[in-house]
Simulated assay, not measured.
Amino acid sequence: MIGRIDVHQHMVPAAYAAWLRDHGITAPGGRELPEWSPALALELMDRQGIATAILSLSTPGVHLGDDREAATAAREFNEYGAELVKDHPERFGLFATLTLPDVDGAVAAAAYALDDLSADGVVLLANSRGVYLGDPAFDPLMAELDRRGAVVFVHPAELPGPAAPGIPPFAADFLLDTTRAAYNLVRHDVPRRFPGIRFILAHAGGFVPYAAHRLAIALFAETGRDLDLILAGLAGFYFDTALSSSPAALPSLSSFPPPGHVVYGSDWPFAPELAVSYFNEPIAADEAIGRNARVLFRRLEGVSS
């Protein structure tokens, strides 16, 4: 069985779930908060051939409107994740959560998580209270992450607008949200200006591989930049397979980015194990997808071999 490195697995500590419920959040993204524990995660990983999971908080993260509360919550849950990694260094990693749109708080949280907690990277929402990644207001954080050569996992949030009746955000809006973030990052030339950052886009980048040339033409019309460079910017992200390794999606996902840029993701526990198994089946024999993330996390190089 393949020992996969899972870059898209979430933790839902009991204290975090209780904190969200205290704020009236019971179904972020349209999914009820799932049952989770480290033991349940390890059992799932053993059944699904996952050697190591890089854990992250999912949407809505920790910024619910108050900068100070967000900073306190980020520290608490990042420290929880770091302790979990310390207890199981080969089985878990950590994408630390930050406090965007509070940029100063996010810079401080990133420094603490990466320097003191030895986090494997950070998770950023595609939009933070309506401000998309790539916005120049976030450049101080990008500079800090670039200086550290950080891995940034980009996870969708709910769109900055009302959901369509009968369509849960996770089903379609999440894909658009990630696509918007990728577009805005390339529009503002963030990957070129901050080349030390390695970005992973959740859910195969939303619509990016499938619609890349359409997106690139729009960016060319606006910016006048070289079309091939725009396409290279869009293709330069890493793309995880969470809920996206279907026979319909795999041809675009496999052919668009450079070799080695498709990495494994499960999206458990928000994706139930039945869904994890369903999307694992088309890539069951593809050992490279399971191991590609080793180049992003050098400490795990020998884990999935």
Rank of each mutant, 00 (worst) to 15 (best):
A51Y: 11
N184A: 05
S128I: 04
F297A: 09
A271L: 01
G224R: 05
R193H: 06
P136V: 04
N184D: 09
A137H: 08
A143T: 12
G121Q: 06
T241F: 14
P195K: 02
V103W: 12
R192D: 13
G130F: 01
L243D: 00
L33V: 08
S56Y: 01
V190G: 04
S37N: 00
L145H: 13
D22E: 11
I289R: 01
E281S: 08
A119N: 11
H155N: 10
I50P: 11
D87F: 09
A285W: 08
R75W: 15
L185D: 10
R187S: 09
R75L: 15
P60L: 08
Y132N: 09
T223V: 04
L117H: 13
D286G: 02
A164E: 09
H155E: 09
Y264N: 05
S304Q: 08
L229C: 04
R193T: 02
L44M: 15
R294W: 03
D177L: 02
A41F: 02
A73E: 07
E43A: 14
A137C: 03
A157R: 12
Y238I: 00
P257Q: 02
D240E: 13
F297Q: 10
I54W: 12
A275R: 00
E301G: 08
A53V: 14
L185S: 10
L117F: 13
G134E: 01
T59Y: 14
V276H: 00
L141D: 04
F237R: 02
A181I: 05
V154G: 00
P13V: 07
P140Q: 14
A74H: 10
E301A: 15
A212P: 10
P101R: 09
S118I: 03
V208A: 11
A288H: 07
E301V: 12
V107I: 15
L20A: 00
D226E: 12
D267R: 02
L114Y: 11
L145Y: 10
R180K: 07
L231D: 02
S266Q: 05
H88F: 14
V12E: 00
A111T: 15
D6M: 11
I167E: 01
P258H: 02
G49V: 10
I2F: 09
T179V: 04
A164V: 13
L159A: 14
L124H: 05
E287Q: 08
G130Y: 01
G206Y: 11
V262I: 12
R193C: 03
I289Q: 00
L231M: 05
E32F: 04
E32Q: 06
F207N: 13
V295W: 03
E144V: 12
A293D: 04
H213Q: 07
A17C: 07
D115C: 11
A111Y: 06
P101E: 06
V186Q: 03
R129T: 04
R198A: 12
V131W: 07
V276W: 01
A53K: 11
A284I: 05
I54N: 13
L296A: 07
F194L: 04
D240G: 10
A235E: 06
D66W: 14
R192I: 00
P195W: 05
F138G: 08
D6S: 12
A110P: 11
H10P: 06
A150S: 15
